[in-house]
Structures are given as structure tokens and as C-alpha cells.
Amino acid sequence: MTSNILILCATGMLVSAYLMVGQKALLTTIRLYGAQSLLLGIVATTIALAEGRHELFVTAALTVTLKAALIPWFLLRTVDRIGIHREIEPALNVPASLLVCLGLTVVGYRVSTGFLEGARGVGHHLIGVALSLLLIGLFLMVTRKKAITQILALLTVENAVFLVAIGVTEGMPFIVELGISFDVILAVLVLGILVQRIVGRFESMDISRLSKLKG
């Protein structure tokens, strides 16, 4: 049962990443990220209950409050304030992006069989999904031009790292976890302000304009 729930949630995270790639409305992307973080929280809770690792309850609580509620709320507010709701045409169009992401998932899954832990069973799927998420996150960061989408891609990568850390390893020391969580929230805050500044100056969230000379 435990492994079923873990697989369900991990695959759900992968599906949410695909939906992020597949559409351009910023609000939906932010909500998808919230759902993804919620699933990560469920993964942490499930492992905590099944293996009696009580410190994971704290991780789950942190994940859900920070990443599934606070960060999406903050980003939604930022989007609301700057009044830009859509991703502009990404560097690669959606069907092509999806094809690339399919390839990346296959690569991630193939690589996961190389890990000792990932040879079979739940570990295989968890590492496979996490590596795929990591690659998809990096890919999104490269191809999307909006600052908000890039933040979300960065956060997806961070979710992927957490999935491996929680699901496969013995878990990170608590202080490291706390540090990462605050790092993430600080990064989002700073990036949120940065986005507002970019929009204020360039009247667009297109970060490719940053490299243009201003006379």
C-alpha cells in the first residue's frame, strides 16, 4: 500500500510537470506547482508513517505550508499585481517541448536503473521520476522567457531533489533541510521583487530584453 501511494504521488508530480510544459497560463502553472508540492508533502508523510521516521513529519509540514501554500500565494499575488497572465511564445513551441521532455524522461528513467537503490521496486520509480523532474525543470528554465516561469522551473528542480532526498536516502539533517527551506522562500521573495522591478522598467516579463542595450 505504501509503495502504491508513493508511486501514485511521484507520478502525479511528473504529470504536473508535463502539464506545466503543456500550457502557458501563468496562474495554472503556479497552481500546478502548488499541487506538485502538496504531492511531495504526501510522499513525506507516507514515508514518515510507514517507516516511523518522525522527523519527516516536520519536512512534510514545512513542504506543505511553504511550498504548497505560501509560495504559490505569493507568486499569484505578484502575477496579480503586475497584471501579466500569459507566457509569451517560448523559445521552443509546445509540441516540440513535449517531445524533448519525453526524451528527457526516458533518459531519467534509464539512468535511474544505474543506481544501486534504483535497480528495482519503488526506488526505481522515485529516482526515475525525480531525475525526469530535474531535467524537465532545467529544460523549462532554458526555454521559457518569463521570469515567473523560470522561478517555477527552479522550484520544480528543488522539488525533484527533495523527492530523492526523502524517498531514497536516509534524509537530510534537519538543520540542512531548514536551511534549504528558508533559502527557497528567500529566493522566491527576492525573485518576486526582481520580477516586479523588471516589469516596472521594461513593461514586460520577457527576460531576453535584459540583454538588450539601453541607450
Binding site: 503543456g22 513535449l98 524522461t105 526516458v106
Partner: peptide, 28 residues
């Protein structure tokens, strides 16, 4: 919200991608 007509193939191609992946993952 309803998608623009030209966005619909993108959504459907997501499902095509997911279905393909479902098939591919069985072999990985």
C-alpha cells in the same frame, strides 16, 4: 477557462505525450 482553439492541440498533445510515456515506462 476555455482554451483558445489554437491552444487545444497543445493540451491534447500533452495527453498524447503522457499516453506515450505510459507505454514507454513499462520497458524502462
Amino acid at each position: 477557462a476555455k482554451l483558445r482553439l489554437f491552444r487545444v492541440p497543445e493540451l491534447v498533445s500533452v495527453s498524447l505525450g503522457l499516453a506515450f510515456l505510459a507505454l514507454a515506462i513499462r520497458f524502462l
